[in-house]
């Protein structure tokens, strides 16, 4: 009985053979319909912020500079490739590509930035879209560059409030369970 089982197991193992793929020495394209890294089409985006406010991972950031320039920054490091942004973009400016080999030692490799030239609203001072034009041409014509996004801002819709007193407490509290010497 015991031997018979072992023979059967051997048969299964031999029949399956080696199943290890030769990846990465042989490329292995993703199947159709795969959701890889989202790609932005600069020409189509109108800067509506729809993607930024619906991204479940909140990894698309939007920031207005000088009331004229809107920067959209996509930081892939937290992206879950869910495709919500592509679903919701009214201009279909986002496509889910089949890129999945995204490991890198430089975050800039997987970050995408769009700079959109907007118009300033005379009432509220916020910026809004120009008529559809080629923004990239327009921007370079203006000689504009904005590379420092350190001060980027998340679109926050939090309802949590926290009083300064409470915060104070967290700094001065008595630590529980200190090791006795």
């Amino acid at each position: 009985m015991w031997l018979w089982n072992k023979i059967k197991q051997l048969a299964i193992s031999f029949k399956a053979g080696v199943v290890t793929l030769r990846y990465p020495f042989e490329p292995r394209p993703a199947p159709e319909g795969f959701r890889g890294q989202p790609l932005w089409d600069h020409a189509k985006c109108i800067g509506c912020a729809g993607c930024a406010s619906h991204c479940p991972a909140r990894t698309i950031f939007l920031r207005d500079i000088c009331q004229e320039l809107r920067i959209l920054l996509y930081d892939s490091s937290r992206c879950t490739y869910c495709g919500r942004c592509a679903d919701l973009c009214p201009e279909k400016a986002i496509t889910m590509s089949d890129r999945f080999e995204l490991a890198t030692d430089n975050r800039q490799d997987i970050t995408q930035t769009i700079e959109l030239f907007m118009m300033t609203c005379q009432r509220c001072g916020r910026c809004y879209d120009l008529e559809i034009k080629n923004y990239i041409d327009r921007l370079s014509a203006l000689g504009y560059r904005y590379d420092c996004l350190e001060a980027r801002k998340v679109i926050r819709r939090s309802t949590a409030e926290f009083s300064p007193d409470e915060l104070e407490k967290t700094v001065t509290y008595e630590r529980p369970g200190r090791l006795e010497k």
Binding site: S158, A160, E161, F162, S163, E166, K169, T170, Y173, E174
Partner: peptide, 13 residues
């Protein structure tokens, strides 16, 4: 810390 209850409304996430 004692006395801070994270699921209470006043504590931010």
């Amino acid at each position: 810390p004692e006395g801070i209850y994270p699921l209470r409304r006043e504590v931010p996430h």
